[in-house]
Amino acid sequence: MTVYITYSRAIGVLFLCISCFYLYFGHQIQLDFWSEGEVFNARSMPYLIGVSGILVAIGLIFTPTKASATDAPHEWQELKQLNWIPTIAFALIIGLYGLSLEYLGFIVCSSLFLFCSSAILGERRWLIMAVLSIGVVSAFALLINWLGIYLAPGDLWMGWLDV
């Protein structure tokens, strides 16, 4: 019998590893000397969760698959038809947003984020994009400000102010 690597099996194997790591780090949790004698201490729950994770993962790996011989490779084929490039670009933009938010400040950074991600998704009406991104973010910032929530200006501008 051929064993097919279905989605469930792939995730099962991955999860088996995660559970093992989890158990290992769970074992590293420091206990104060009071808890060492306790029946159920800070490590107990991680042990329970880790072990059940391993069991379920093994179960998932060895569950007989209903998929016929043609299905399993087909499953992976579907992934290739997705729009990966814009998605990865979008993810990168979000990552950049997180990294530069405190440096550029909320308004500038968020406007840039909206503008660039629209561009990634194929929007080319530059003027509308600019107006919309700056407008939405400014309106939002105004509202936040009106509610009394403080948004720190970016480090970039702060450094500028100090001089």
Binding site: S8, I18, D32, G53
Partner: peptide, 29 residues
């Protein structure tokens, strides 16, 4: 089984941080 596995993932994520009972840090690296 898939749903169960995802529940366990949720349980794992819930243990990150300061443990309320003993005040020790778990999985904070």
């Amino acid at each position: 089984l898939k749903a169960l596995l995802m529940t366990i993932l949720g349980l794992m994520l819930a243990t990150v941080g300061t443990d309320l009972t003993a005040g020790v840090q778990r999985f904070t690296f």
